[in-house]
Amino acid sequence: MKPPAPQAASSAERACQVIRDAIQSGQYPGGSWLREQSIAERAQVSRTSVRQAFNMLAAEGFVELHPNRGAMVVDWTEENLLQVFDLRAMLEGYGCELAALNRTEQDLAALQAEADVFSNLLVTQAVAERRLVAESNNRFHRLILSASRNPRLASLLVAVVHVPIVRQTFGKYDQIALERSALQHQDLVLAIRAGDAQWAQATMRAHILAAKNVIFDKSAT
């Protein structure tokens, strides 16, 4: 079988990005069916490229494929989401531990800069746009994974981090929770700068588990 032409691959990737962005923004909620024709028109690609995109998104955990029916956006149950947060706490905790051991001065500068961006968003009108907060948070976590110097770990986390729950989490944060998260980012930078692997790992686990408690409002139970 011949490999797909570069143009076809590019079209499938473009369709995949369009669908992924729409899922993450809530335009396609969990349980909704994705229609090939409307997506093909929106992404300006062929329906074949859309079907290829469905397969890519199924591999990432965004959609479920149903024979003769198409693709449905995954409807995340509370149990699924709890598992995601627990997995993130374990894997990102390990990644932060590695970052404390392997980081460079350039890594530290980038982490400090992004932690400051996150903090500054909380004192500007931009905080009303939680998308910006979520994007800064994602960049910060990606920088830590990069500093870990473990590409396989980063690959394992791709599907988890891409699950559209980060934005949901920040949508539930009040000002106090946001400020606590900003302080945790600063603590993570301090632990990584100190080269203290245990401190870094424990701080990251606490950071992720705090987010889990916010989204499920565990403090209210």
Score class of each variant (00 low, 15 high):
2 K>M: 14
2 K>P: 15
4 P>I: 02
4 P>K: 10
5 A>Q: 15
6 P>L: 14
6 P>W: 09
9 A>M: 12
11 S>H: 12
11 S>Y: 06
12 A>K: 02
12 A>L: 02
13 E>V: 12
14 R>C: 03
14 R>N: 07
17 Q>I: 10
17 Q>P: 01
18 V>Q: 04
20 R>L: 15
23 I>Q: 10
23 I>T: 12
23 I>W: 07
23 I>E: 08
24 Q>E: 14
25 S>H: 10
25 S>K: 14
25 S>N: 14
26 G>L: 06
27 Q>G: 05
29 P>S: 06
36 E>P: 00
36 E>N: 08
36 E>A: 12
37 Q>A: 09
37 Q>Y: 00
39 I>W: 02
40 A>F: 01
41 E>N: 12
41 E>L: 10
42 R>H: 01
42 R>Q: 11
42 R>M: 05
44 Q>R: 05
47 R>A: 02
48 T>A: 04
48 T>M: 00
50 V>W: 01
52 Q>W: 02
55 N>V: 01
59 A>V: 05
60 E>K: 13
63 V>L: 10
63 V>C: 08
65 L>T: 12
67 P>W: 01
68 N>G: 09
68 N>D: 13
71 A>Q: 03
71 A>N: 06
79 E>A: 15
81 L>P: 06
84 V>W: 13
86 D>T: 12
87 L>R: 12
87 L>T: 15
88 R>K: 14
91 L>N: 10
94 Y>Q: 13
95 G>W: 03
96 C>D: 01
97 E>G: 14
97 E>F: 10
107 D>Q: 04
111 L>K: 05
111 L>C: 10
112 Q>K: 13
113 A>N: 12
114 E>M: 11
114 E>N: 11
116 D>W: 04
118 F>C: 07
118 F>L: 13
119 S>Y: 03
120 N>W: 03
121 L>F: 08
122 L>F: 09
125 Q>G: 12
126 A>K: 08
130 R>N: 05
132 L>Y: 15
133 V>G: 03
135 E>M: 14
136 S>E: 02
138 N>M: 12
139 R>G: 05
140 F>H: 05
141 H>Y: 12
141 H>A: 04
142 R>P: 00
142 R>G: 11
143 L>I: 09
143 L>N: 01
157 L>D: 00
160 V>S: 09
161 V>R: 13
162 H>P: 01
163 V>Y: 09
165 I>L: 14
167 R>S: 13
168 Q>W: 09
168 Q>E: 14
168 Q>D: 13
169 T>E: 04
171 G>Q: 06
172 K>R: 13
173 Y>G: 00
173 Y>H: 14
174 D>S: 05
176 I>A: 14
176 I>N: 10
180 R>F: 11
183 L>Y: 04
185 H>C: 09
185 H>R: 08
187 D>C: 08
187 D>P: 00
188 L>G: 04
190 L>A: 15
192 I>V: 15
192 I>F: 05
193 R>C: 04
194 A>W: 00
194 A>Q: 07
195 G>H: 07
195 G>W: 00
198 Q>I: 11
206 A>L: 11
210 A>C: 09
210 A>M: 15
211 A>M: 11
212 K>G: 07
213 N>V: 06
213 N>T: 14
213 N>H: 13
214 V>K: 01
214 V>L: 03
217 D>G: 02
217 D>E: 09
219 S>N: 11
220 A>L: 04
221 T>I: 08
